[in-house]
């Protein structure tokens, strides 16, 4: 049976109309709400490409039933700001972007990390993004981007 329900995404109320209730938040964001920034690379919580904030907590949108997110504040990569954030700029400047498929999820994970910890150690950083697979960069430029974003924040 299909159902219509409301979601709150990036500070806006959205209506999901006549949707199959088995749809993940990731599917609804991408295919019903025109927010394809969260990527679908595995649909099983093993890649982090669909990372979003749900009530401020970093989760995989593929593992969240959209119809169970009805009273949550969801923030996607599209909701981080009108321009580029320091984290996003650092990804650009430091060469952390190649194909870019993992990038939105990594931007979310790094944003989460730097919100929680202003000065993460090397291993804290690695662990914090260990749920975000990148196949292009070998992570080296991503580490550099996080350092640059940190320094940018500190200034």
């Amino acid at each position: 049976m299909n159902e219509t329900y409301g979601l709150r995404i990036n500070g806006r109320d959205e209506q999901v109309r006549e949707a199959w209730l088995g749809e993940s938040l990731l599917y609804v964001l991408r295919e019903r709400l025109g927010l394809p920034g969260s990527k679908n690379a595995c649909e099983q919580g093993e890649c982090g490409s669909c990372s979003v904030f749900c009530d401020g907590v970093l989760v995989n949108a593929c593992c969240l039933l959209a119809a169970d997110a009805v009273d949550a504040e969801v923030t996607t990569v599209e909701g981080l700001g009108a321009g580029s954030t320091p984290v996003q700029r650092a990804f650009l400047d430091e060469g952390a972007v190649q194909c870019g498929f993992c990038t939105p999820g990594l931007v979310m994970a790094v944003t989460d990390l730097l919100q929680r910890t202003s000065d993460p150690s090397e291993t804290e950083l690695r662990e914090a993004i260990s749920g975000n697979l990148c196949r292009c960069t070998g992570y080296g430029r991503i580490f550099a981007a996080v350092r640059a974003a940190q320094q940018g924040d500190a200034q």
Partner: peptide, 23 residues
């Protein structure tokens, strides 16, 4: 030079259209 990617800004903002994003 280490010129920046022209597709970099849309990619970091989630606005770059991958083939799976088409509609």
């Amino acid at each position: 030079t280490s010129a920046p990617r022209p597709d970099g800004t849309p990619k970091v903002r989630g606005q770059f259209a991958f083939s799976s994003d088409l509609w």
